[in-house]
Design a protein around this nucleic acid. Sequence first.
DNA 1: ATACCAACCAAACACTTGTGCTGTCAAGTA
DNA 2: TACTTGACAGCACAAGTGTTTGGTTGGTAT
Lengths: 215, 215
Amino acid sequence: MRSADGLSTRQEKILNYIQEFFAKHGYWPAIRDIQTDLKISSTSVVAYNLKALQDKGKINRQGKVSRGITLPNTLGVHNVAHQVPLLGIITAGQPLPDPEEVDVEAADKVDVPLDLASAEKLKDVYALKVRGLSMIDALIDDGDIVLLRRQDSANNGDMVAALLLDENAVTLKKFYQENGRVRLQPANSTMQPIFTMAENVRIQGRVVGVLRSLF
Amino acid sequence: MRSADGLSTRQEKILNYIQEFFAKHGYWPAIRDIQTDLKISSTSVVAYNLKALQDKGKINRQGKVSRGITLPNTLGVHNVAHQVPLLGIITAGQPLPDPEEVDVEAADKVDVPLDLASAEKLKDVYALKVRGLSMIDALIDDGDIVLLRRQDSANNGDMVAALLLDENAVTLKKFYQENGRVRLQPANSTMQPIFTMAENVRIQGRVVGVLRSLF
DNA sequence: ATACCAACCAAACACTTGTGCTGTCAAGTA
DNA sequence: TACTTGACAGCACAAGTGTTTGGTTGGTAT
C-alpha cells in the first residue's frame, strides 16, 4: 500500500515516529528504538526502509553515526526561532517594567520566529503580555504578546511604548515630533491622535512585533 | 577561571561546542566529538565536565544513550518553531486560495513559534499575508501575517475567515449563529457587527494566529 | 608536612547501535 | 516452470560511544 508520496505505510509510520521521537526526547531515535516501538521484527527491516526513505529524500542520514537520522526541515531547528524573555504584563496606566530590574534568566521565554526579526536585532528585545483593551487603537488585543526593544528615543513614525507623565499611562502609538510638540497617532486610522508636549512623553521602548494566538 | 555563570572556561567551550555542533549537523555530538575537536586529552575529562554542566542545569543527558546530550533551550517541542506554508495574500473581496490547489511544498514557509500552538494543531494551518486595511476591525493591519486553519464550519465565538457571497468579499470576524441568521462581530469593539443569512456565508477557515513585524 | 579536593589524564571495559550477511516468501513475469 | 524483485526475518559482528577505574597534578587548608 502506498500513499500519494510514494511511501509505504510502514515508511510513513517510521517517518512519523522519527519526528515524534525527536519532539519528545530532543535527540534522534536509534534503529532499535524504531524497531521496538513500531514492533518491527528485525533491525534490518528498519534499515531497509530507512534506506528507502533516504533515497526518496525524506530523511538525512550520516553513515555509521549513532542516532544520526535527521529530518531535512528540522535540521538546525533552533535557528528558526529566538527566545526573548517575557517580562510581565502591560496595562494602561502602568509604566513598563525595567528589564534591568527583572531576572531575565528566570523569566518565561517567548519564541520569536526569525522571519519577524534576525537574532541580532532581537538582542535587546523583550516581550510583554497585554491585558485589557487599552491598546486596541494600536490594533493590539487583550492577550496579545508585544515585542519591545528598550530605547528612550524614537524616530518619526516609529511605533513606541510611550509613558504620558500627566496621566501616568502607557500607550502604544506611532510617534511624530512636530514643531515642539509630539503627536501620538494610533495605528488604527479610525481613531484620533493625541497631541502633547515633548516634556510630557517618556519613550519606554519601540514596538517591534506582535504575536496573537487564537487557539 | 570562572565566568559569571559559575562555569569554567572549558565548560563554556564545551557548551558552546554542543550548540554549534547541533546547528551544523542536526544531531548531538558524541563525547569523542567533543574530545577531538576541543583537543581534550581524554574522554573522561569530557565526561567529568559534562556531569558538571548537567549538575548546573546547562545540559540534559540521557544516561547510556549515544549522542543523548541535549540543550534545555533546544529540547523538545515547546521551544521549536514549526513551519507552515505562506500561500498568498488576503485582501477584501477575494476568496482565499484553496490549499489543495497550491503547491504547498514550493510555497514560502513561515515559522510559527510553538508557544502559539502545538505542532499537532498546526497540521492543517497555513499563512496569508494581509494587504490593505480591510481587516482593521479584526485588529489586523496591513502587512500582518494571518494563520488560518482550513475548515468550513465554525463554533460560536470563533474568529473565522468568512466569504460573503453577495459582496464576494472575505472578512475576518467573530462568528455567531443566532436564530437563523449569522452575526459577524468585529474583534474591535468600537466597530459594528454584520448581520446576514446563513446561506450568504461561507466559512473558509478559522483564524488561529496573527504575526506582526514592525522591524 | 599531611590531608584533601577539584580538575585532569590514560587506558580498559562494557553497553549501544549501525551494518552485513543469509534466508524466506509472495507477487509478478518471461 | 524458472527467474527476478520487493519486503521481511534472524542473527552475528564490528564499529561507535558512554562509563569506570586508577592515577597524576596543583593548590589550599589543617
